[in-house]
Amino acid sequence: MKELRWFLDLAETQNMVDSSVKLGVSQSALSRRLAALESEVGAPLFDRHGRHLSINECGKALAKSATEATGVWQRGVEEVHRLMDPERGTVRLDFMHSLGTWLVPDLVRSYREDHPHVTFQLVQGAAQTLIDHVLAGEADVALVGPKPTAFVESGELGWKQLATQRLALAVPAQHMWADRESINLSEAADEDFVAMLPGYGTRMLLDELTARAGFRPHLVFESMELTTLAGLVSAGLGVALLPLGDPNIVTPGMHLIPLREKRERELGMVWKAKTSAALAAEAFRDFVSERAEV
């Protein structure tokens, strides 16, 4: 960028003496720089009038582009400085929709109490989409569930478990099983199911558990929100696999029957393994990991 700065200064002063004094170089050195630049672009950039210079149309065109390039470069330098400052960086945090009402607000609020100048770029989506974002370097961390075992075991992703939730079969309050205290998922093979769309964490668990139970669920509705599933169940439109312990999906007219299967919904944080991240993102990741161990 030094090559651009001296040229922009000369374009502004249009005076070889003034620019050489300001830049701290000799007039002869500045003249050689200008001659070399004009040779490179293939056109004179100033009209000469004795010792005086007058920037011409070619010089104005180059100065305009040089100003834009310098601005882009400076913004890039500032962005690097920001990324290297753990107290003023940006954390690109992705998370599942179901975590947006409790876990994410709590983590962000708690972190910003001690790091008020850190900003967060928040993205919600399906668990698989969020995992793909992390793998592609489009997110620093993601809060997902269940654990993406294949990626963790291959070493592509790091994983920190934050919580587990037991799973239940949600049925309408008037369902014949509404007073059951537990159930095997295989018993629901002939039921109509409402489920999350493919790629969402709870849908992954439903597909896994029904495959183990030896049946494919008959899906009548699909959604992107667990709260919508709860509403559909309470309306008598089907049964659903839902996590226990989430107050946001407790809906009148619905009963949750704990599954006898031992499978739980893991909730955790993933990040791209063996890859350096912005210092602010690394600090936030450490903060979340330490909280999980308390």
Rank of each mutant, 00 (worst) to 15 (best):
L167V: 04
G214C: 08
A142C: 11
P198M: 14
M204A: 15
T210N: 03
E68G: 07
T70E: 09
E138R: 15
T70F: 03
S39F: 02
G214D: 10
L83A: 03
A127P: 02
H49P: 00
I183T: 07
Y200V: 08
G231K: 06
A170G: 12
L37V: 09
A150F: 13
L242R: 00
T251A: 08
F151Y: 13
L241H: 05
M196H: 03
S19R: 05
T275S: 12
Q174R: 13
N248M: 02
G59D: 02
V17A: 14
L83Y: 02
T228V: 13
V123W: 01
L244V: 09
W271G: 00
L122A: 03
T251W: 07
D207H: 13
P247E: 14
L279C: 06
L99E: 14
A69N: 04
A292S: 15
A43L: 02
L205P: 05
V91E: 09
G50I: 13
N184W: 13
M84D: 12
A189V: 08
A150D: 15
E113A: 11
K274H: 15
A178E: 06
V220S: 00
Q165P: 07
N15V: 02
R291W: 10
V141M: 08
V72D: 09
L162Y: 13
L244W: 12
I183M: 13
A139M: 06
A126V: 01
A150H: 12
